[in-house]
Amino acid sequence: MVLFWKYVAILFKSQMQYRTSFWLLTLGQFLVPFSAFAGLYFMFERFGQIRGWAFDEVALCFAVIHMAFAVSECFARGFDSFSTLVAGGDFDRLLVRPRGTIVQVLGSKFEFSRIGRLVQSTLVLAWAVSRLSAEWSVLKALVLVLMIVSGVFIFSGIFMLAATMCFWTIQGLEIANIFTDGGREMAQYPLNIYKKWVTRFFTFVIPFGCVNYIPLLYILDKGNGNGLMSLLSPLAGIAFIIPCLLVWRLGVRHYRSTGS
């Protein structure tokens, strides 16, 4: 973990060599999610509510997912852009260093400009929290933090799965975007507005439901969600990383026996 921050420090220095580009990218990342948020706003303007969800409530959901996405794009960018690392042969370099592959891949890239997106979603979160009528407690705040952390793990896990595919093929990685960008777009709404199979897929296969829908019910005092269940479900999201790590190890082993 100490080593990871050392990597981040050197990448930050590198990034600072291109200050203008950094500020522009950050500004862009700050503004882009506003268009998505505006879309959300106008939809609710037109329909008032969706399946019993009000605008402020969905905004909270939106903010949590976008925060998680921004943080994981910052930290796990190395996995997101892993194909360049493999194609360029630089993964061999990682293998001749006496450290684990995961910390080294994480440390290979850090997307500082995503801080713009993070700021934007933090603003939305603060705004949504201030407008919600639900009563706040320490437990609820804890659940909210866990939701974000859990989201980070899920997105990072997907990045990792996509990266693992690079060991077999460099082409066809677009499919992973269905789950990252697609997953983000889906999960910014509470999952019960979708068809049943979609909800099920995003609860049991890729557990976005554990990050937004189930704990959200608790925070907003909706339905019969109890505290314990809502506290545990984000943990299930965090557990998503475990199979991803195993698949990653499988991929590394494959790479080391085929060298391609």
Partner: peptide, 27 residues
Amino acid sequence: VVFGQRSQLWWDVPVLDSFELLRDIYK
């Protein structure tokens, strides 16, 4: 290991910074 055609140094920072990171990687 030196791969003549691939660099192990960080492209945009002074060489010394790369050396210091390598020091931390190798402890």
